[in-house]
Design a protein around this nucleic acid. Structure first.
Length: 323
DNA sequence: AACCTTCTCAACCGCCCCAGG
DNA sequence: GCCTGGGGCGGTTGAGAAGGT
């Protein structure tokens, strides 16, 4: 036998909540506080499962819930955090005041994934957590006590992590924050390399145009999520990269860009050869919209640093392969 | 106006983690 | 060490809305 359901399901209402139910729930929690979800429906006079009550409260009724469209900053942060944390929606939600994990998950699945697909980025790469194989709901659970199974798993956790039997090898992009100093001291080649495969870095590159001191020639390897315009766009006079785009062979395309003059342009790009990738669109949107200076966004910066530290401590220290 | 398709998102479901007995 | 209950999480679903024909 599996676990007993969290509550007796007979006679319980399902589906959308009525305003009356919302009111009952909100009033009850206002008076008695959160918790004890299992007993809550009875006490509050609701014909709902405790879990359902909890969900309704957490995702909808709780004070401070922000509703409506996500701002650009929020989307930005979601993308960056997702590239670090994968589908850990609750963790991501924890960094977005007023947003719920459910909302973020929905937003990701409906909006962001679409963008990623258009940009030619495989969203699967962003998965961080281990995904258990989908179970056929029609199949009965194995006779083995799930708890025992769970305990076994706990015991074998260390082994499992290293085992080839682990169902899904997870790719975690190494989080790299491109400081303006790093950029100043980097060639584009390095920047491209560092940014490869990690969406979160695209946002860091917003700083590039303002601190741009690039080499005259560089190579961006295939698959790197770099749009050339990200480098070439500058606050002032610079030739449009698309204007001077030249078709090369299938693997290499060349672009020659001459800056109009030196005024307000710290670096010049004379020639750039690169292997184009399909993932330009998102970067266009992210990068060409204003080139905001992230150094002013202390909050985002702080959050990001925090996660870098977290990730480096938890994920990478034991796994040199991910370094 | 009617029908069909696609999209959105609230809600559900099953699984997992953890604390406590 | 085992078991249980409470709570939390992420994947998925499906009703309603929106858009297209």
């Amino acid at each position: 036998m599996g676990r007993a359901p969290c509550c007796a399901k007979e006679g319980l209402r399902k589906g959308p909540w009525s305003t009356k139910e919302d009111l009952l729930l909100a009033n009850y929690i206002k008076e008695n506080g959160e918790g004890q979800w299992r007993n809550l429906p009875n006490k509050a006079g609701l014909l709902r499962c405790g879990k359902s009550c909890r969900l309704r409260w957490m995702n909808y009724l709780r004070p401070g819930i922000k509703r409506g469209n996500f701002s650009q900053d929020e989307e930005d942060l979601i993308i960056r955090l997702h590239s670090l944390l994968g589908n850990r929606w609750s963790l991501i939600a924890g960094r977005l005041p007023g947003r719920t994990d459910n909302e973020i998950k929905n937003y990701w699945n409906t909006h962001v994934i679409k963008k990623l697909k258009i940009a030619g980025i495989q969203p699967k790469l962003h998965k961080v957590h281990k995904v258990s194989p989908k179970k056929d709901p029609k199949k009965k659970p194995k006779t083995e006590n799930p708890r025992k199974k769970q305990d076994k798993m706990k015991k074998n956790n260390k082994k499992k992590d290293q085992s080839l039997d682990t169902p899904q090898v997870v790719f975690v992009p190494k989080p790299i924050r491109l400081s303006s100093e790093l950029i100043r001291n980097s060639s584009i080649e390095n920047v491209a390399l560092l940014s490869n495969s990690s969406l979160c870095c695209s946002n860091s590159l917003k700083m590039l145009p303002q601190t741009c001191q690039v080499l005259k020639k560089c190579t961006i390897s295939k698959g790197s999520d770099i749009h050339l315009s990200a480098f070439l766009k500058s606050p002032s006079n610079i030739a449009s990269p698309s204007d001077s785009y030249e078709e090369g062979d299938n693997n290499n395309k060349k672009i020659n860009v001459i800056t109009n003059d030196d005024e307000n342009v710290e670096g010049k790009i004379k020639e750039v050869s690169f292997i184009p990738c399909a993932s330009n669109l998102l970067f266009d949107e992210v990068l060409l919209d204003g080139f905001c200076d992230l150094s002013n966004e202390s909050m985002l910066e702080k959050v990001y640093e925090e996660y870098l530290q977290l990730i480096s401590e938890k994920c990478y220290q034991d796994d040199p392969m991910l370094m």
